[in-house]
Design a binder for these strands. Structure first.
Length: 587
RNA sequence: GCCCCUGUAGCUCAAUGGACAGAGCACCGGACUUCUAAUCCGUUGGUUGUGAGUUCGAGUCUCACCAGGGGCGCCA
């Protein structure tokens, strides 16, 4: 929030360096790392090291300390700052607490839900995420792409980008045909009532079981696949109807998770366009047609003249002319840019195992002359697995269904709400339980590095204590509770009359950092940083809550703390919104 | 064989190349007549896998090795 002040000081220090003929460096500003202190710091080790390299016989640490002291003396106390001190080669500049405290609180309350929002950039980006397979269950393993993609979209939007959220369901393929085969033979006429995705998943599992028990039946599946390929009306109609059941089930899940999409691309949509691109690649001499003995391949390393293996060889069409994922991804990438020609980035939130695949697809498109290919980017994430390094797979039956997890998490939350807030209406209790349960599920997927495996186990998934979403939500509720009990409109303004407590300083410091954290998280596609930030903010508020009475304080202090409480509540709310977690009114 | 990711407290994880490597869980001991205890306070816990290198400064960058996971021509 204080870029202008920071720049002014940087200019002064640079002037000092010039006057004293010191080497030029870029000054990096950091938050003073000691909690309870609010300000920025930089160091002079780099200048001292450069001097040493120029042949001066100096001790770098001592020289840095000397420079820091000199600069501190030179700066005096700049306008708007409380004090400047030199410590061990560092220059610490403390904000003038009262003035900036009021400024921060005013800014937050004025901006409201837009506090932290970056200035609008004239840039559109697409985020593709949550590629669920129709005719299969939706399990916890599918959750990470959905949650990560959603939050990355929220971050990019809040950072100032115009975001197109895309879903790419796998609505055709062998798994769908197997499902249709099982349905036509053993469940014809049945329709799902509730728990659609579970019902769909059960039939898929049954299909696999039957085919395993009696492999002779696979010929029937092949026959059915051929009928689909010929687009026999009966098969197509059934496919369309059953596919819609799955999509309805997904919609219900997305609704519960508060995730939405702007555009749907379907696997089935890009099958034929993909084959056209393959023909084009062959014509351009990029793809090599080895049919019928072999598939159509793109020998990337060879085309690029690479001596060491990097992109290897990508198969773009099977020898029997059927499409693969690669075939379809070529067409999908193209379709995205034809639908939205102004995309400055096209992101793919897909698990890390497909890293090579996407490198191959993007490089192939680049070689084919599509200039937008370099704007495609894969955002990889690690899998959610079960203890014992077991990957979730519908076919193996090693899955935790999302419905079960949501049900269990909300049931636990509901039990606590009933105990703590018996007077609330049942409807409100349900809403709170939903917010807490879903939040608890989402947070652990966000509060870690994308590239780290999440091991799912019931115990930690249902642990609502400590660094978890309910902790943050509870801080929000507590803030709201104070404001409600104040029983008066929020004071229009409030001066700082007493010296601020360390808890207040830390809280204001954290609030002021939200805009920078948003930019940082969005630029790096790392929800982790906002997730950690939200927790630290909540923790700082809980500290404040226990140490600094609000309603009992004398009037001037009370007014200031009421505004600080309101500002904190807003900052927590905005952070939770970014994390896709609902902020409940009571808990 | 080649490539990618991971390795930090008993466990799960943080840490813009910078100040004493921090949280949560678990363990132990405290705090509800108070603005909601889904909270707070305190104690315990570390040669950051190993070895070199770069740097004024390395958990962070480079290299080698060790361990685990993943990917590598017709799976998705």
């Amino acid at each position: 929030m204080f870029e202008r002040e920071q720049q002014a000081i940087t200019q002064q220090i640079k002037a000092f360096c010039q006057k004293n003929q010191l080497p030029e460096v870029d000054f990096q500003w950091k938050w003073i790392p000691f909690s309870g202190h609010w300000g920025i710091s930089t160091s002079f080790f780099q200048i001292a090291a450069l001097e040493a390299r120029q042949g001066k016989r100096i001790n770098v640490n001592a020289r840095a300390a000397e420079l820091a002291s000199q600069v501190a003396a030179y700066l005096g106390t700049p306008e708007g700052f409380e004090k400047v001190e030199a410590v061990n080669g560092y220059l610490n500049i403390y904000f003038l607490q009262s003035a900036y405290a009021e400024q921060v609180i005013n800014a937050v309350l004025q901006a409201g839900e837009n506090f932290g929002r970056g200035t609008v950039r004239n840039e559109r980006v697409m985020v593709e995420f949550s590629q669920p397979n129709t005719h299969k269950a939706f399990h916890v393993g599918h959750l990470r792409s959905a949650i990560l993609g959603d939050v990355i979209s929220r971050l990019l939007d809040f950072a100032g980008f115009s975001v197109v959220r895309a879903n790419y369901p796998g609505d055709i393929g062998l798994h769908v045909i197997k499902w249709l085969w099982c349905y036509m033979n053993f469940h014809r006429g049945e329709k799902p009532t509730s728990d659609i995705t579970r019902w769909m998943g059960d039939i898929y599992a049954e299909a696999n079981r039957r085919l395993e028990e009696n492999p002779d039946l696979e010929s029937e599946v092949r026959v059915l696949y051929a009928r689909w390929d010929r687009r026999e009306p009966e098969v197509v109609a059934l496919w369309e109807e059953t596919r819609q059941w799955s999509l309805n089930g997904f919609e219900e899940i997305y609704r519960q998770l508060d995730i939405h999409f702007d555009v749907y691309y379907f696997n089935s949509q890009v099958e034929h366009p993909g084959k056209e691109i393959v023909n084009e690649l062959i014509a351009k001499g990029i793809a090599v047609d080895e049919r019928p003995e072999g598939p159509v391949v793109v020998k990337l390393d060879e085309l690029l003249g690479l001596k060491t293996e990097k992109y290897r060889v990508m198969v773009v069409l099977r020898s029997d002319n059927t499409a693969l994922y690669a075939t379809e991804d070529l067409a999908l990438a193209k379709k995205k840019f034809s639908d939205y020609p102004d995309l400055s980035r096209s992101y793919y939130v897909v698990d890390v195992r497909q890293s090579l695949h996407f490198q191959q697809v993007f490089k192939t498109l680049e070689l084919a002359g599509y200039e937008w290919a370099t704007r495609c980017q894969h955002i990889p994430y690690e899998l959610v697995i079960l203890p014992g390094n077991v990957v979730m797979a519908s076919r193996e039956g090693t899955v935790v269904l999302l419905e079960d997890l949501i049900r269990e998490a909300t049931a636990r939350a509901l039990a606590v709400v009933r105990e703590k807030n018996p007077d609330l209406s049942e409807e409100v209790k349900q809403k709170i339980a939903q917010a807490v349960g879903i939040g608890a599920i989402k947070y652990p997927m966000l509060a870690r590095e994308n590239t780290k495996v999440v091991t799912f186990d019931w115990q930690s998934a249902l642990d609502f204590n400590g660094q978890a979403a309910p902790y943050i939500q509870y801080a929000y509720v507590r803030a709201g509770s104070i404001l409600r009990k104040a029983n008066r409109p929020l004071p229009e303004e409030a001066k700082v009359t007493e010296p601020l407590t360390p808890q207040e300083v830390e809280l204001i410091n954290l609030i002021s950092r939200l805009p920078a954290e948003v930019q940082r998280s969005a630029n790096e596609h790392r929800p982790l940083w906002i997730a950690t930030y939200a927790y630290e903010l909540a923790k700082a508020f809980n500290d404040f809550y226990t140490q600094c009475p609000v309603l009992q304080a004398e009037e001037a202090v009370r007014n200031f703390r009421l505004r600080l409480t309101a500002a904190t509540r807003q900052a927590i709310a905005n952070s939770l919104t970014l994390l896709g977690i609902t902020a409940p009114q009571a808990m």
